[in-house]
Simulated assay, not measured.
Amino acid sequence: MAQLCSLLTLCLFFLVPSFLSPSFAGVPPSAPVSAGTICKSTPNPSYCRAVLPNHTTNVYNYGRFSIRKSLSQSRKFLKLVDKYLRKYQPSLPTSAIHALQDCRFLTVLNIDFLLSSFKTVNGTSTTLSLVEADDIQTFLSAILTNQQTCLDSIQSIASTWSIRNGLSVPLSNDTKLCSVSLALFTKGWVPKKKRKATWKPRNKQRGFKRGRLHLKMSSRTRSIYETVSRRKLLQTTDDTDEEVLVSDIVTVCQDGSGNFTTINDAIAAAPNNTNGVNGFYLIYISGGVYQEYISIAKNKKYLMMIGDGINQTIITGNRSVVDGWTTFNSATFGKF
């Protein structure tokens, strides 16, 4: 099992703001403070002052307002992208269409993240648990990444200046507002000990020990795994922190001997919105060259993929910018 190297761990990295000034950091989140004062310690003070209400309130109300406004602006941006797609698509080059489609996809995802974030902050005016705070920081930071990806795609379509200019400014403003939202969220809802920390993985990455992976599974699942991988599983230990629980397994084999012949079919058949209590849903991908573009939807949770090893299980594609694809859509593997 030493060759077991195709386990795909998909993580969202979040940015913990480090721009909270000493004077602002000493103000309790529940204390009234002017918009001008609070904006001095955000990444874009002038933009912050322009969008926040001009009255005195606490960080929680400012934070809820900024996230709600981010949601409103994202919805407006989505309508703008749809307008361009409807009005100009017949005359647009392929690269511009792909750029707009990237932005549409990412904006829909951002709206979902903002809805989840607002639901959390709207329900409390106190610091959250570390896990809850981690989730919202991840969402807001992912939005910033998505907006930058969209902006990169838009700026690359130099031949369509009307679209580029029409989308760049509102997108830039959306990014500024989201960074303000992240700063206010960090001040109001994130525990102090986490606020000062650098990024760390949300959970301990269990399972790897001396380069090997301990999988805990039923006898049926174990038999399937050992047959398809031609490897014996390591003996489990009494330390459950060293084991990765597997709930079920399906196999992908190009010769038809497995449950599926393509990776995408196996992902589509995986259960939706699992909570992970019973472990990971394991997709074992036998050796071969898979010419596929893999997109894992957000409702496909707790998936684990294992291949036969380096230069054995290969996922590849041939999309390139030269052919009109954006960098975003040229990736062979992604989680959305």
Rank of each mutant, 00 (worst) to 15 (best):
A268Q: 06
F113G: 02
S172T: 15
G334Q: 11
K87Y: 06
K301W: 00
D152F: 03
S95H: 13
P201Q: 09
P271S: 03
R206G: 12
K298Q: 10
S129L: 11
Y284A: 04
S156P: 01
K83F: 06
L144A: 11
T327E: 15
S125E: 14
D174K: 01
Y47T: 02
V81I: 14
C253P: 00
T126W: 09
T316P: 03
Y62V: 07
Y293K: 11
S91V: 10
N275G: 10
S159T: 09
P28E: 06
N278V: 11
N146Y: 04
F105S: 15
C11T: 14
G36K: 04
A331C: 05
K176M: 04
F19A: 00
F65S: 05
P201A: 07
S153N: 12
I315C: 11
T236C: 03
S229A: 06
L245C: 07
S172N: 13
K194G: 04
R231F: 11
I310Y: 13
V51H: 02
W325Q: 13
F65R: 07
V81Y: 04
N264Q: 10
D82K: 15
L177S: 01
Q73C: 01
L78K: 13
S18Y: 06
K176Y: 03
V121N: 05
T149N: 06
G256Q: 08
R68E: 03
I136K: 08
S21T: 12
L245K: 15
F208V: 15
P53S: 01
S168A: 09
S70G: 04
S95K: 15
Q312T: 14
V277D: 14
G288H: 02
D239E: 12
T138M: 07
I315N: 13
A2I: 10
I67A: 00
F208K: 08
F185D: 00
L282S: 04
F13Y: 07
L130N: 14
S179K: 04
A25Q: 05
N273S: 01
S66W: 00
L177C: 02
K232Y: 04
R220Y: 09
